[in-house]
């Protein structure tokens, strides 16, 4: 492929669902600006390319790489290191890359258990009991599939990251704004934020953008969303349904609570917060309206899966990262 002289752009998906790619395409005609200003050199979902093409590029020759997905296997890690080497600006794009997201919830169990659940449990139709084998000797030679790591890692636990863009996926208007910013920087009209910054997000939390009425919080019972008719005007947390809004960085425009669903925390921790789950946990614990240990116990029983609730998106980026079960081997 010959260069057209424009700055080079790459996007990659590691352990991810593909939602981030769709979010990028969802910027509509803005994608034409990307094409006008960048030469897309590597973007597996959108164009054909080989890893060896990337390996052949000069170090630092890609201006901007949006890297989504967590580091689940050795292929993910290899490409992360490769793109780090080839890119001037590496952005951890989306929740998986910034904080582990859903893939990192596997860090609560051992990798054997993950594979077992995937291929052998009752919900799986696998009559021949086929399990993936790491290597296979074909007539043409030995082939292999990427090796799974016991712990899912975030991008910055593997390589140095320049910027973080949270969200599952990042909101399209935020992506568009970031692309505009980079174009402005290219044209000398703006400067980049300090390295390590979170971009494409707000500086407060979701409650800041949420129009629901709020009062002091006193919770006597936690309810699950399917068991309750939510009042459309009042703070969801006050109604006993755990809303992660108070702990979650804003930038999405509080879409979920406005649609009658609690915030589930995909934009990650607020600026300066070390451990998202711990913060949310202490906040939720703080508003339980009881001093009686037995009653508190009963109220807490209303949260059937605390790790999944409070660390839904952040387990990989949390202080603990994984449970003992995952580390055990």
């Amino acid at each position: 492929m010959t260069s057209n002289g424009k700055p080079k752009f790459a996007m990659y998906w590691a352990a991810s669902c593909g939602g981030c790619e769709i979010a990028v395409l969802n910027i509509h005609e803005k994608i034409l600006d990307v094409d006008a200003n960048f030469e897309v050199v590597f973007w597996p979902v959108a164009m054909d390319a080989k890893y060896k093409d990337v390996e052949a590029m000069e170090d630092g020759s890609i201006l901007l790489t949006l890297f989504n997905g967590a580091i689940r296997n050795d292929e993910n890690e290899h490409i992360a290191k490769l793109l780090r080497q080839k890119s001037k600006i590496l952005v951890a794009f989306g929740s998986c890359a910034t904080e582990g997201c859903m893939p990192a919830l596997a860090n609560l169990t051992s990798i054997e258990e993950v594979v077992e659940t995937y291929y052998s449990t009752i919900s799986t139709d696998n009559p021949q009991n086929i399990h993936p084998q790491p290597t296979y000797k074909a007539p043409e030679g030995e082939i292999y599939i990427p090796k799974l790591y016991p712990i899912v890692r975030t991008l910055d636990q593997v390589v140095e990251v320049d910027y973080y863009m949270p969200g599952c996926p990042p909101e399209s208007h935020q992506i568009a704004a970031v692309i505009d910013l980079v174009i402005d920087v290219l044209q000398g009209k703006a400067t980049l934020p300090p390295k390590g910054s979170t971009i494409g997000a707000g500086g407060s939390t979701v409650c800041d953008d949420c129009p629901r009425k709020r009062d002091v919080k006193k919770i006597k019972e936690f309810k699950r969303i399917q068991d309750v008719m939510l009042d459309p005007e009042i703070c969801i947390l006050e109604q006993g349904v755990i809303c992660s809004g108070p702990a979650t960085r804003n930038g999405c425009g509080a879409l979920c609570p406005q649609a009658g669903s609690p915030c589930i925390g995909c934009y990650g921790p607020a600026e300066g917060v070390l451990d998202y789950g711990a913060r949310l946990l202490t906040a939720v614990a703080s508003v339980i309206d009881s001093n009686d240990p037995a009653e508190i116990e009963r109220i807490l029983d209303g949260i059937p899966d605390p790790a999944g609730m409070f660390y839904r998106f952040n387990l990989g980026g949390s202080l603990l990262r994984a449970s003992k079960a995952a580390w055990a081997k």
């Binding site: 500086g203 407060s204 939390t205 979701v206 409650c207 800041d208 709020r214 009062d215 002091v216 919080k217 006193k218 703070c235 947390l237 809004g245 108070p246 804003n250 607020a270 600026e271 300066g272 906040a283 703080s286 508003v287």
Partner: peptide, 21 residues
């Protein structure tokens, strides 16, 4: 004040009633 989103989690916490919304 820039970071506070007014979620009011803290309002009821203060044993000295020092926090107001």
């Amino acid at each position: 004040q820039d970071k506070c989103s007014g979620c009011r989690i803290c309002n009821n916490m203060c044993p000295f009633n020092a926090i107001s919304f």
